[in-house]
Amino acid sequence: MKNVIEVKELTKHYNGLTAVDHINFEVEEGEVFGFLGPNGAGKTTTVRMLTGVIKPSSGSVSVMGFDLGRHPIRAKETMGVVPELSNAYTELSAWNNLQFMAELYGVPKRVAVSRAEELLTKFDLYDRKDHAVKTFSKGMKQKLITAMSLMNDPEILFLDEPTSGLDVRSARLIKEMVRELRDTGKTIFLTTHYMDEASQLCNRVAIINHGRIAAIDAPEKLKMRIGGLQYVEVSFTAPVDVSDLRAMAGIIGLRTSGDKIQLYTEEPDRTIRSLVDYSRSNDLEIVTLNTLTPTLEDVFVKLTEEE
């Protein structure tokens, strides 16, 4: 398999803040590569550097074998881009927006006409092709923006949080499109903060936090890493000796936050019974007791602690 994206020591500083911090990865031809991370992790900054919109502070990117610093135009011609916060030209019709994209990417007129018709039909917008985009709903706009990114029949498609804030139907349509494109052999680079979306769509996922990649792996493998990570959160009326709790059977980790103690465990049921026994024998009262499945943040904590 050949690499269509190669990223080496990529870094971006914004006046003292390091948004992306020496990241390295490759994306192979034909894969859907997910970039997963919470808000502010550096996903958009990374996509902007990969698509040549901003220049890195240091490091290099090559796309389809073209170094983005040296051959930005050639590299950009191979890409389709759906930026995170972007818009079509609302005063133009859907049709004119698509044709404008084709002209920017140097697509011959005849090809552009048939491709626009095909995309409008596929995205269920054909009836509205001559209407100004300002009359479109949010979902319709997002579909049009996605169609615009496909006008040059790109080898690689970059989607920055494509389903964020969309209604269920539009989101599903976009996900279906990602699968279809994958089946035709296109490479897709997708950022998201939805775990589900990443696991449904991606062959591999990079988890990014504070500008660093914490893990890169297939979603199922990542899930296995975090699968055992459930915890029980407890608080008592009086302070307790945490080492007693740590010594309980099945506990794999312990954190305190305020007056609450979080016990990481593979067997929540057994942990709860032990806690109840513990409080009874020490004459303590339990104030709160919850079992929690990990949030995305917990995954990050776990993955970054592992490093």
Binding site: G52, V53, M79, S86, A88, M101, L104
Partner: peptide
């Protein structure tokens, strides 16, 4: 303001 600029910046044009 209308957020069209990033698309232009991502297009193969200087």
């Amino acid at each position: 303001q209308t957020r069209n600029l990033e698309r232009l910046a991502a297009a193969p044009i200087s």
